[in-house]
């Protein structure tokens, strides 16, 4: 199965010894697991210098022969989002990732300028409740940010990081309630969870997330390969939905 990972990263990682850190390393890992494309955000932008980090992600993508698709990460307290995101979009960025739990415990209203600028530039907005499934990292509830989905109906939002139990149920509710919300699967570890999402809300707005290279690619792919859903739904989740969301389906 050829897959796209909508939840990838590029850059160094200080939390444990990670085998891959360069774009070349990541592409080699993608090749090993038949990952055709990865949407990547900068680990530097996530944790330290978001301007330098975004430049690194954009440069890595520009040199990847289309294998890496860049999303940027911005400091949600900065006032000049509109200009910044327009510039990033012009340089090839397809979306912007927001990490409320990692960045100053961001309040919902602080993301309004980001969403407005993303709307103007045609960028997808990823709202991450967690970076990866790692219990040493903070987790943000998605509920307080839901009003953004209504406030910006023309923005396509990807909710990133939902795990098992109540979080997985929340995912079904979000798909049912908001036509502009998509869910990714990188942290969805409950038994049969993809099947539950698809049977309750369809496969059209479910995206494969792997978390390459921070999470084992085989794990993220196995949960889709083994999911008890139609092959057409698997193909949509594996690749086609991401292509449609990112305008890469022509």
């Amino acid at each position: 199965m050829r897959v796209w990972d909508v939840s990838g990263f590029v850059g160094a990682w200080g939390h444990w010894p990670l085998p891959q850190r360069t774009a070349a390393d990541i592409i080699a890992l993608m090749d090993t697991h038949n990952v055709e494309c990865a949407v990547v955000g900068s680990t530097r932008a996530l944790q330290t210098d978001w301007r330098v980090g975004n430049d690194e992600a954009l440069d890595a993508a520009a040199e990847s022969n289309g294998r890496l698709i860049p999303f940027v990460t911005v400091d949600s307290t900065q006032p000049d989002h509109a200009d910044l995101l327009a510039d990033y979009a012009a340089r090839g960025a397809k979306g912007v990732r927001c990490y409320p739990s990692m960045h100053y415990n961001t309040l919902p209203h602080q993301l309004e300028p980001v969403c407005a600028a993303a709307q103007d530039s045609g960028l997808v907005v990823t709202l991450a409740t967690r970076v990866i499934v790692d219990w040493s990292f903070p987790v943000a509830p998605v509920g307080p940010f839901e009003y953004l989905f209504n406030r910006f109906p023309d923005v396509q939002f990807v909710v990133h990081g939902l795990n098992y139990g109540a979080e997985a149920w929340d995912g079904i509710r979000l798909l049912d309630t908001y036509a502009n919300v998509w869910l990714e699967t990188s942290c969805l570890q409950g038994l049969g969870a993809i099947s539950q999402w698809v049977s309750a809300a369809g496969a059209d707005r479910v995206l494969l997330g792997v978390g390459i290279p921070l999470q084992y690619p085989a794990c993220g792919i196995a949960k889709l390969e083994k999911a008890k859903i139609a092959d057409s739904a698997k193909e949509a989740i594996a690749r086609l939905n991401a292509q449609r969301l990112l305008g890469e389906d022509s």
């Binding site: 697991h33 098992y164 570890q189 409950g190 038994l191 049969g192 969870a193 084992y216 690619p217 085989a218 794990c219 993220g220 792919i221 196995a222 949960k223 390969e225 083994k226």
Partner: peptide
């Protein structure tokens, strides 16, 4: 609780 295929892949992959 957890997806068995994910836990298998963690070792096999």
């Amino acid at each position: 609780l957890l997806d068995v295929s994910v836990q298998m892949a963690r070792v096999s992959g």
